[in-house]
């Protein structure tokens, strides 16, 4: 009996070590790879500062909530290592829809947001949660569908006419239905087309862009996609671009601008504001803007930088249409 009791104590001890190691590894953002806190490495949570002692932010972690379209295209992984090396920090990129990314930031759970729905961004800023917004880059939306094109929208110069044609033909249409930037754009387009979509042909999937493209692909349906995700996924699916966005001469209404904003430290004092501003400064710098324009998938450029310009553009810092005259509204 005593032997077994000792065994039990040993087991309890081992369990306790695993659990304490887990706790002490909370700050080791830099070495996420050896997640094996159980082998004792979890104790060195403070060694992150060795990378750059002179910089005050070294060893810290920047939590960035962003959209699936920036993440799934691989852009962020491509450019972030440069920032991480420069400051000796870690960037935790969490890919959500635009709505969810803003909500996470609203709760104070992220330090910075990079999204693409100006209306939602403006609301976020007007409510005081976000500050120092910068225009970052753009690409465009395209209407994709099966090559057979049952609604006959191929080559249409107007996105709203194309949607009206789809609705009239009751052709299958897949909607993101997830409060993302793309979903917001799609709803704006339906509104501009004066059509209230509904019925068997209109499906809200509640999924990310890639999944929505997969579903549209399998059902031979139309959908609205950002060009970047479509290009990065084109080799996996049979859909084709039927209505082009402004990058290829399509209507301006299909433009897809991305913005980046810091979480207001006046609202959430735990937000890592210093690092967020360092990130905004870095990603809007000429060097990184250049890296964004050079990023290609399948030989095509996905994002077009727009942070660097000779001319002033004050609207990027404030909600659209804001002017000092209505500042007290």
């Amino acid at each position: 009996m005593p032997i077994q009791r000792r065994k039990f104590v040993a087991a309890v001890g081992a369990g306790a070590i695993v659990s304490t190691a887990g706790c002490s590894s909370t700050n080791d953002g830099g070495d996420g790879g050896d997640g094996g806190g159980g082998d004792g490495t979890g104790g060195n949570g403070t060694d992150g500062g060795s990378a750059a002692e002179s910089v005050g932010v070294a060893g810290e972690t920047l939590t960035l909530t962003t959209t699936t379209s920036t993440y799934d295209t691989g852009l962020l992984d491509e450019i972030h290592s440069d920032f991480e090396e420069m400051y000796g920090v870690t960037v935790d990129a969490v890919a959500q829809g635009t709505g969810a990314a803003l909500e996470t930031a609203r709760n104070g759970d992220s330090d910075i947001v990079m999204v693409h729905a100006r209306g939602l961004e403006d609301e976020f800023m007007r409510n005081g949660y976000g500050i120092n917004r910068r225009d970052l880059m753009f690409n465009d939306f395209v209407i994709v569908g099966p090559e057979s094109d049952p609604a006959g929208i191929q080559g249409m110069g107007s996105a709203t006419e194309a949607l009206t044609a789809i609705a009239d033909a009751q052709a299958q249409f897949v909607s993101r239905g997830d409060n993302s930037g793309t979903h917001t754009k799609e709803l704006n387009l339906w509104e501009a087309a004066g059509t209230d979509p509904g019925g068997d042909w209109y499906q809200e999937t509640g999924t990310g862009m890639g999944e929505a493209l997969n579903i549209a692909n399998q059902q031979g349906a139309y959908t609205l996609s950002d060009r970047g995700t479509f290009i990065s996924q084109r080799s996996e699916i049979d859909l084709t671009i039927l209505v082009q966005g402004p990058i290829e001469g399509g209507p301006e209404i299909l433009a897809n601008p991305y913005g980046v904003m810091a979480v207001n430290p006046g609202v959430h004092e735990n937000a890592n504001y210093d690092l967020a501003m360092a990130y905004i400064g870095w990603i809007t710098s000429p060097g990184v803007q250049n890296a964004i324009s050079e990023y290609q998938v399948n030989g095509e450029q996905l994002f077009f930088p727009e942070a660097v310009s000779e001319d002033p553009d004050f609207q990027q810092y404030v909600p659209e249409g804001w002017s000092s005259d209505d500042s007290d509204s």
């Binding site: 996420g32 790879g33 969490v94 999944e211 996924q233 996996e236």
Partner: peptide, 24 residues
């Protein structure tokens, strides 16, 4: 979450599967 060099921080096998499926 993974870091930029592809080392997982909070990505598990299940969430990695979900991510791959999302991208087709």
């Amino acid at each position: 979450i993974t870091s930029a060099d592809g080392i997982s921080k909070t990505r598990t096998l299940t969430t990695a599967i979900q991510l791959e499926a999302r991208q087709g």
